[in-house]
Design a binder for these strands. Structure first.
Lengths: 207, 207
DNA sequence: CTGCATCCGCTTCGATACTG
DNA sequence: CAGTATCGAAGCGGATGCAG
């Protein structure tokens, strides 16, 4: 818990007392896709000072949002994972992301953390445009593969996994993906059915 | 727009670039119930320095969230009001408030702004417990009257308005209301049907 | 190598005073 | 009423150090 509090009898103010500090919700976003180690968190959040990450994790632990767990050998490590209370922030993050979606247009030369890629795909997904669609896409950004599965008007995003028999394979880097999301495919290696790429473009749209 | 940005291609990070600074979302909450003047905002947000309020309003204006408008005579003034983009933050605030609801238990000696009272009532409202309910309650906290109308499983909250023929009238102050929300009615003047008070208590519940 | 703590320069915040 | 000016305190970002 930070020292600075709003001191208001208001559910919004109370939530912001816990979540409102810089980096806090981005750390929660990182943990949304599963437990992570301290160093992995730091690597995915450039600009966040190491001691500040430690402080935020302490506050999140104290707030009942994050649990610290020792992973036994063979690969001993400390991982941080969300509690149920932490996972309940999914709705908060979803709404903030939906609101923030138009702002992605302004993005230039930004970093693309793995979890941001996953959240981005979920946020750009248009359920109504995917009603009759049922296929899988292979996406690979900066060497990190993601399987995107569209099915029954929903999207499933699996990190670090190879899609089997994808309708289209897109291999690119951060810049290429950002341009792709803007509807300007360049610097991307695309293999497969061009129609499938168009279908993907309609389902995952920035506008 | 603040100078500090996350520089991530992520809809959450982009939203937080605009909304993540201290006080920003609380100012939006204040404006959610209608336009307000500079001084009214400052009075409802104790602890917020005047120059910081000016800076936040500038940023919110620049971000397309708040519009500055001159009200012509007979009562000339400057008011700030939300744009459609600003009103779209309703869902964000609602989710944050729902998540923060349990934290209200910890509240001691807090300030209760008018808009926090309204948001609090909307957040504490249990739709399922109000399915067959159709009545109006008069609530008055620190001299500010609020008409709470429960109807068809929804709640309507009208600030600065007197409820007509309310099922119960509750007149209290900040401390009294906070205790009331915790289920400890004390220091509150209550008039009307005791059963109606119980019904209100089931519909508006902290737990 | 991981998981921090410490130090330092800069920015932001909070409180008060002051002005058109 | 609607802000700007000023200033000490706290928070942040980056680099470095260090124990397990």
């Amino acid at each position: 818990m930070p020292r600075r509090r709003y001191r208001q009898f208001c559910p919004l103010a109370k939530a912001l007392d816990v979540l409102g500090e810089r980096w806090t919700l981005l750390i929660v976003r990182e943990l949304m896709t599963g437990p992570k180690r301290y160093t992995d968190l730091r690597d995915e959040l450039p600009g966040l000072a190491t001691d500040l990450l430690a402080a935020r994790l302490r506050e999140l632990h104290h707030g009942g949002i994050v649990e610290r767990r020792d992973v036994p050998p063979p690969t001993p490590a400390v991982v941080y994972e969300l509690t149920p209370r932490g996972h309940a922030l999914d709705a908060v993050i979803t709404e903030l992301a939906l609101w923030g979606r138009p702002l992605l247009q302004e993005s230039i030369d930004d970093y693309l953390p793995q979890s941001a890629l996953l959240l981005g795909i979920k946020t750009l997904f248009h359920s109504d445009a995917a009603a009759d669609l049922d296929e899988t896409y292979h996406l690979e950004v900066d060497g990190r593969p993601v399987a995107v599965q569209v099915h029954d008007g929903t999207v499933d995003v699996a990190p670090d996994s190879i899609a089997e028999r994808p309708a289209v394979r897109i291999v690119t880097d951060t810049k290429g993906f950002i341009n792709l999301a803007r509807g300007q495919p360049q610097a991307a290696r695309i293999e497969g059915d061009p129609d499938a790429l168009n279908r993907l473009g309609r389902v995952l749209d920035l506008s």
